[in-house]
């Protein structure tokens, strides 16, 4: 796995995440939450504008 070793090197200076970590998952779902808010409120604003 050349990929993982390169990520290892890169992240040496940063915090390391162990085998049971789910931090990446949490960050990823939060991005989904942001999309959820943006998409819903855009259509909601369109609704208000056309009312």
């Amino acid at each position: 796995m050349t990929d993982s070793s390169s990520t290892n090197r890169k992240s040496n200076t940063r915090k390391k995440y162990d085998e049971t970590s789910l931090s990446g998952t949490f960050v990823s779902v939060l991005i989904i939450a942001v999309f959820m808010l943006i998409s819903w409120f855009s259509v909601f604003l369109l609704f208000l504008e056309r009312n």
Binding site: L22, T25, F26, V29, L30, W40
Partner: peptide, 23 residues
């Protein structure tokens, strides 16, 4: 249930509740 999953489900549900409240 992992604490991050709990947190995510709470956040997600809160967002849905905000939508419902506005509606």
């Amino acid at each position: 249930i992992h604490r991050y999953e709990k947190l995510w489900l709470i956040i997600g549900s809160l967002i849905l509740l905000v939508f419902l409240a506005i509606l």
